[in-house]
Design a protein around this nucleic acid. Sequence first.
DNA 1: CGCAACAGGTTTTAATTTGCAACCAAATTC
DNA 2: GAATTTGGTTGCAAATTAAAACCTGTTGCG
Lengths: 147, 147
Amino acid sequence: MVKRTSHKDDPCPVARPLDAIGDWWSLLIIRDAFEGSRRFGEFQRSLGLAKNILSTRLRNLVAHDIFTIAPCADGSAYNEYVLTEKGRDLFPLLVALRQWGEEYYSDSYQAKVQLVDRETGKPVRRLELRSDDGRLLGPDDTVVVGH
Amino acid sequence: MVKRTSHKDDPCPVARPLDAIGDWWSLLIIRDAFEGSRRFGEFQRSLGLAKNILSTRLRNLVAHDIFTIAPCADGSAYNEYVLTEKGRDLFPLLVALRQWGEEYYSDSYQAKVQLVDRETGKPVRRLELRSDDGRLLGPDDTVVVGH
DNA sequence: CGCAACAGGTTTTAATTTGCAACCAAATTC
DNA sequence: GAATTTGGTTGCAAATTAAAACCTGTTGCG
């Protein structure tokens, strides 16, 4: 799974999560989970990836406590993969990725895929970083300390 | 670069960016750029990755218009890699990744690495998704339309 | 019940990617 | 102007990924 000397020892909080979610598929699997997928077959059909790869990825995500395996809710003997709290906390990250994608990769000619407020049906606001006292912060307004 | 039948044709705005930034190193390179790295050697020393890999990644990032190559600001004959606007717009994504990492992967025993407001020195607020009219939205309060 | 089809994987194998090391040309330093 | 640094490229071995075949337990159905 780990492609090189893993990032576990990198103190940077940007680097360390990459062992868990730093590959192509993991984020897409999590995206699908947010949209309701739970079963192995659902993920596979939706993503069109090889079963062994999905198997490996799910195992890794479970090992990193992003999914848990639970008995299927519909009473069948199969299991389902459900997001843990840690997994659900990836929501802002997925939204950030989605918004960036919407901005730079949406074709004008094809139906626009958008994230909307379920209650009103309106598109959500753009994510924005704010200071402790509420000012809008850009890349140059912040520093990383503790490095 | 592209590991499989690329995501260019996937209509989902989560999937399409992955051709550009969906691998381990690209995000770390971009993180370094936000922290001031510009030259090939800076990235390499900071990340400790092989030169051919860095070379490939930078080429890909330039191809995706996330970096541009510019003559070095300090007057030397070398070039430097500088983030485009598209690249700088990845800031919220990096912050989201960082905040998730801070929450789940920070060792209590080692110096905490934190993103702080340059002006006040205080930690920034958590990113949060809000509806058009300002309500805080979680994963279950949103739907993707246009799929 | 009995059998076909399906879910959820594992194994095998081939192709692709990675990472290390060596090499090299241009620029810079001394 | 010789030595060193910068910014790469190339070749090769090792690791990863992907496709396909295979296998086992479950479910649907007549």
